[in-house]
Design a protein around this nucleic acid. Sequence first.
RNA 1: GGCGCUGUGGCCGAGUGGCUAGGCAGAGGUCUGCAAAACCUUUUACAGCGGUUCGAAUCCGCUCAGCGCCUCCA
Length: 502
Amino acid sequence: MKKYEQYPVTVTNSLKGTKELFQPITPGYVGIYVCGPTVYNDVHLGNVRTFLTFDIVTRYLRFLGYKVRYVRNITDVGHLENDADEGEDKISKRARLEKLEPMEIVHQYTQGFHDVMRQFNILPPNIEPTATGHLIEQIELIKTLLDKGYAYVVNGSVYFDVTKYDREHHYGILSGRNIEELMESGRKLESQDEKRNKIDFALWKKASPTHIMRWPSPWSDGFPGWHIECTVMSTKYLGQEFDIHGGGMDLKFPHHECEIAQATGATGHAPVRYWMHSNMLTVNGQKMSKSLGNSFLPRELFTGAHPLLQKGYSPMTVRFFMLQSHYSSTLDFSNEALNAAEKGYKRLAHTLSVVKDLPANYTSNNPDNSLNEELKKLVEECYRCMSDDFNTAKTLAALFEMSTRINAIRSGELPHERIEPETLELLKTTYVSFMQDVLGLMEEQAPDGELIDGVIRVLIDIRKKARLDRNFALSDKIRDDLAALGIRLMDGKDGEITYRID
RNA sequence: GGCGCUGUGGCCGAGUGGCUAGGCAGAGGUCUGCAAAACCUUUUACAGCGGUUCGAAUCCGCUCAGCGCCUCCA
């Protein structure tokens, strides 16, 4: 029996707003697509939360035994900008400002994005397709939509006919919007005279003469519209119908709604079984976003170099902080919350090193049934919580309970004779795998960890000797001086000394 | 204006009808040469009002407060 049969996963499907049993189209296999970053600027922490959410989703599905293909794109064409009258492309605008080639910018920020993902221990997707690498497919899809009558050409640009689509299907199934209200409300834009209706959206945009990023097409030299890339790249690698499509909440409308319309228009059926949306990061109750200017860059967070931050926080502290809330809730950033997370994370991380040092061959001569049952229940709890819509907050609560038990076993306060060896082994492997493989919380080490470790061990030996000689002046000096450097020595019951780097 | 979300103890944050969330902070204790860590014990809740129910933080209604999307956004 596969683990995913033993612990069936439920997901909140944004399409219906309810939690439902997750059943992949092909048993045992999962296809997942997530809208990746637009690489014209540094990724900020809000982006990180979304990619962390789906990192957890893919990690856990794999952990359960599913074979997962995870596709996350890079948007390197840039989106239409409304404040520029002629529909200027974000990437080309910035290119001119900095006197760089568009491709140069794309490359630079893609690298930066990958660096940040690595720092947070967010695993790379199986395929990371780029919009510019799929122009042919995008043009082909636009042709299909034109053939089927869902699109029309005006002055070299192509638009999707939402009204026509809505008559045959239903536009707005994801966001709960209806077409009449959309037609009435919202702002009117002068540049929209080309469109038949204000809610129509561009599939292909003719480039102005000054526009640098441009490609030939049957309609004009220009560039693709914002939504078409995701439809093309998701269905190319995952099929016309696939399991999970994810992204930030703010993409629900219009981006994902338009994706559904395009794909449904082209194929006649809905592209995605389960839509998942991660919620926003907030600062003082307000959405963290580039445009509001209240967003942190990851490196600002690590160093503390930001007016709103008291100090720096490590990537794993931040990862832990984000996992303490459910992905579907907003999460507010504050120094107090981060400080609490730092301590909590260190506790779990310390237990991770403790559990790895626990002797392998414990024997049990006096097993305590209720204790064994309790420990097994904690193990079950980890699976149960993760399978419940990837509830990392609840899973962490279970890991804290396990941490308490493991520390007690280590110190001897909980005699290991009372625990059956199989139960103890299960406890150990579950703790390690949920921490490292499922939640991706690694132990953080200084870059030159081995050297420092060696040096500290020498000092520990000297301290041990001094304590035996009752030379407390010396032993205290070693401990205090190391503490001043952020290295904490802790005397164990058995005379052994362990340390932690803060 | 339309669509939607949220309001939990000093702070963060799970929980969706009866059963301990958890972390941080606070208090007491055990251990220790003294500490730290660890372990044990412990205080403070469900925005307000009304309703449904044997029973509501959890469902329904109203009020208040805040937020998101509707424009590029994760």
